[in-house]
Design a protein around this nucleic acid. Structure first.
Lengths: 355, 355
DNA sequence: TTGAAAGCGCTAACAC
DNA sequence: GTGTTAGCGCTTTCAA
């Protein structure tokens, strides 16, 4: 159809409209009042030439690219897509564009990415960091994050999943409470020998979930048994292996909490391989409530992922508007979802939205 | 730590190094030979000032932003994350950044996005279109895609999943062959009354999969029975409903193929709800082989998603390098994965990588 | 109300 | 081998 080979810019519009380029800019952005007659001429020219703003040039001038970066562990890990989807959808509505990055859970890569982002002039970052905040080696990195600058001006950074420190905005989940909720459920259905296959302790979330388990034991006056708490690595295999170890240890358990759904699924499999009945012999509950949990009818603690994404973006927008806003922390709570892995015969429904 | 509030640019580097800005540019980009002494002074200044290139300015000058857009249906739909992950990972390695967009399967939204992308100056697009190529209303849109321009110069576009026309580069799956492979498997295990719960016919992929089913019947000289082919909408519920309809129709079937895993899972559920045994009474096979299939031990046709992403990016890079390269189509084949839903007692393994 | 002109940070002729 | 300079397309004072 059109055959022009030259980029058409604001100045072409100005020429065919017979006005100055600043006038064009003003009608396009509503920056200054412009007479109706000129405005019309400009709009007509825009139509005629099929003019499109150049966001790059605009960004160079204004310092705002309307692009935000989302840095997560992995784009496939079942937990992040819903988060991303929610962020992307809202950002789109707000006229922002979302660029994604995966760290693969490696701190080196994460740091490299943060470094790289400095040259990109994005307007903000949503980060699910894999940094162990307890590791002294990371303090300078955390310091850098807290005071991240691109070319002199501070760039908004919102943490998700893990609260890196008390100065960065963050959207997190109350993990202690979440595990407590899970424990509570198992206790309610009469279980007293409850094991915990832990999320890795190197992550803050892992530390907190463990804390939740310990706090639960204390609350119910149950004895702590170190053989009933094993550290997994988030994968189903690790859940499988941990469960095998527990079962082989000779300890009798009637309940199991896992630090995420994947490990819980692995653990269920190990139990079933041993001929144990779920939930009769062992009630199993996961954490996160990713959709596979509903597929295999496993109880879990639902983490509101869409809500996390939504809130993270809101915090980011807030800080973009007002860089000096006071620090804000949003702590979300997980809900108990009961299915057949803890209560037999539970009416089964599927989580049909998310795939 | 650092406290400079002014963006530091190439000219600051030039000043502290005591050279001209073009020299700085040349050592940074290796554009022209520069004497070792000056080069060192420049690099030292870069170090000292913590200089970071400004990709926006660079982009404005060069017309290359090193950013590509990936437009898909949904970021949560189990099919895309592996694809995205693969694209993002490779792009990262190549120094490209990936911006994601979701259409929600709505053509309007897709067109709006494409329009919007024109102002972004990305270097290329990978698109999984939801356009029905058979609909005459879409010809002008398809025409536009085929000859997409940003500011006068053509912008590379690679289609994935669906071959929009014979001029656009594309990475697709041989759907006819894929369904045939599934059918073939059911036939091999002795099934002769095979129903098909179809992927929506409005999508090319849906059309082709249906074709695969029909071709299979023909090949094995089996009668076509219109009551054994029902159109689903990709969701598990639709699979559930279709299966219920089939079972209620009085037709006896001993095998079922679904146009994707989700529908297959829904169908399995419907069958089990009726007290039917899988695979004894009905052997069920899905399509795509997303990881939930391995979770519930369902046979499926594995679509190489990572490979698709990888190839799509390769095609995109190829076309960025050489806009006039001849059109290239990559057709990938799916592999049969046999699990318990078609052959009882199959050794079960999990797909542990992808979550 | 409108327009001229000065850059945003960088690249790439073109001179020296 | 090195420096000068003219823009890339746009926003935004500042004058008219």
């Amino acid at each position: 159809m059109e055959k022009e080979m030259k980029p058409i810019g604001i100045k072409d519009v100005a020429k065919t409209a017979g006005v100055s380029i600043s006038t064009v800019s003003h009608v396009l952005n509503g920056t200054k009042p412009v007479s109706d007659s000129l405005r019309k001429r400009v709009m007509d020219a825009v139509e005629e030439l099929h003019y499109e703003v150049n966001m790059v040039a605009k960004g160079l001038k204004s310092g705002r690219t309307h692009n935000i970066a989302v840095v997560v562990n992995s784009l496939t890990s079942i937990f992040f897509p819903p988060l991303l989807q929610s962020i992307q959808g809202d950002a789109d509505r707000l006229g922002y564009t979302v660029t994604v990055f995966a760290t693969g859970g490696e701190l080196n890569k994460e740091q490299e990415l943060i470094q790289m982002l400095k040259s990109l002039w994005i307007d903000g970052i949503i980060l699910s960091s894999c940094a162990d905040t307890a590791d002294p080696a990371n303090v300078s990195y955390l310091e850098e994050l807290t005071d991240l600058k691109i070319n002199g001006h501070p760039i908004p950074l919102i943490c998700i999943e893990s609260e890196l420190n008390t100065r960065l905005d963050a959207v997190i989940v109350d993990d202690v409470d979440g595990i407590f909720t899970a424990f509570n459920h198992l206790y309610d259905i009469g279980r007293r020998h409850i094991a915990y296959i832990a999320a890795p302790f190197a992550y803050n979330t892992g530390k907190l979930r463990k804390e939740g388990y310990l706090a639960s034991l204390k609350k119910y006056n149950l004895p702590f048994n170190s053989r009933l708490i094993l550290e997994g690595d988030y994968t189903p295999v690790s859940g499988y292996e941990c469960m095998k170890t527990i079962l082989a240890s000779g300890e009798m358990i009637d309940g199991l909490i896992a630090g995420n759904d994947q490990m819980a699924i692995g653990a269920m499999r190990a139990a079933m391989d041993k001929g144990l009945k779920i939930p009769e012999d062992i009630a199993v509950i996961g954490y996160d409530d990713n959709f596979p949990a509903s597929l295999i009818q496993m109880s879990s603690i639902n983490i509101p992922k869409e809500e996390m994404g939504k809130m993270a973006l809101e915090l980011l927008m807030r800080r973009i508007e007002n860089p000096n806003a006071s620090r804000m922390l949003i702590r979300l709570n997980g809900d108990l979802v009961v299915r057949n892995s803890t209560v037999a015969g539970t009416k089964s429904t599927w989580d049909l939205e998310n795939w």
